[in-house]
């Protein structure tokens, strides 16, 4: 075997606040999905002679769900803020497919990585175009879950913050339908997580850019030649 040198460039892609956001978000989604599923399908305490005054099991599950929901919301709001002040990979503009180029990139990812009917070298230090679009969809799901969730919570809380969501129940026409939709959208997160984790492994394996560890250290490895060329192009565009 011959050793061929491939010059790689180490790029600091995910800044520390983005990484912290990611892991808080992941933890929140895990907790919210588990507690949310249990709220819909509770485990029954089955010890003989149980008396309600000795237990608060379901109350705790619900408390954890509500408390985590607050953390989830404020973490999400922080991420939106970071979309305006963070580096180019965190910028809010990435998430909206508005340019022809973005759609072209999405097509490339779909044909090369998803369907694998074409071969092309796609190198994106940040999220690729399809990933960006999917995150945009998940942000909408975040928003939807926050609105429906706090809408239901407003019926049992006098807190001024949840009172801001008093309008939600009348819009949906009742708690039952709101509950069902809120519960159903949870599965979007489950499916998203499965695909997300798989694709991280996939790209780590196929691209060799270190994406799996990038959410720990923030670094990714890209071809030096291309990265510098791209930077020059960007600089030229800027002028």
């Amino acid at each position: 075997m011959k050793h061929k040198e491939v010059p790689l460039f180490r790029v600091y892609v995910w800044e520390r606040p983005v990484r912290i956001y990611h892991w808080i978000n992941a933890l929140c989604i895990l907790v919210l999905c588990v507690t949310g599923y249990l709220i819909g399908n509770p485990i029954v305490l089955q010890h003989g002679g149980n008396d309600a005054s000795n237990h608060y099991f379901f109350g705790w599950i619900r408390f954890i769900h509500f408390a985590t929901a607050y953390l989830f919301l404020f973490n999400f709001l922080f991420r939106i803020y970071w979309g305006f002040v963070g580096n180019r990979y965190a910028n809010w503009k990435n998430y909206f497919p508005y340019s022809k180029k973005h759609f072209q990139n999405m097509w490339d990812v779909l044909t090369v990585d998803v369907l694998q009917i074409r071969k092309k070298d796609i190198e994106t230090p940040g999220h690729n175009a399809v990933a960006n679009f999917m995150y945009f969809i998940t942000f909408l799901a975040f928003l939807f879950e926050v609105i429906t969730g706090f809408g239901m919570y407003s019926a049992m809380s006098d807190n001024w913050f949840s009172d801001l969501f008093r309008w939600v129940i009348p819009v949906f026409g009742g708690d039952l339908i709101l509950r069902m939709i809120h519960h159903a959208v949870m599965w979007v997160f489950v499916v998203f997580t499965i695909v997300h984790v798989y694709l991280v492994f996939y790209h780590d394996y196929v691209d060799g850019s270190g994406v799996l560890s990038s959410m720990a250290g923030g670094w990714k490895f890209v071809s030096k030649e291309k990265f510098l060329k791209k930077n020059q192009e960007k600089a030229a565009e800027g002028k």
Binding site: Y37, G40, N41, M180, H183, A184, W187, I194, Y202
Partner: peptide
């Protein structure tokens, strides 16, 4: 919704295994 969600989850699992 849970039955449908679980079905989607399993279908996704099968899908990614095939993709791998």
């Amino acid at each position: 919704a849970d039955k449908i969600g679980l079905g989607l989850g399993v279908a996704t699992g099968v899908g990614i295994a095939a993709h791998a």
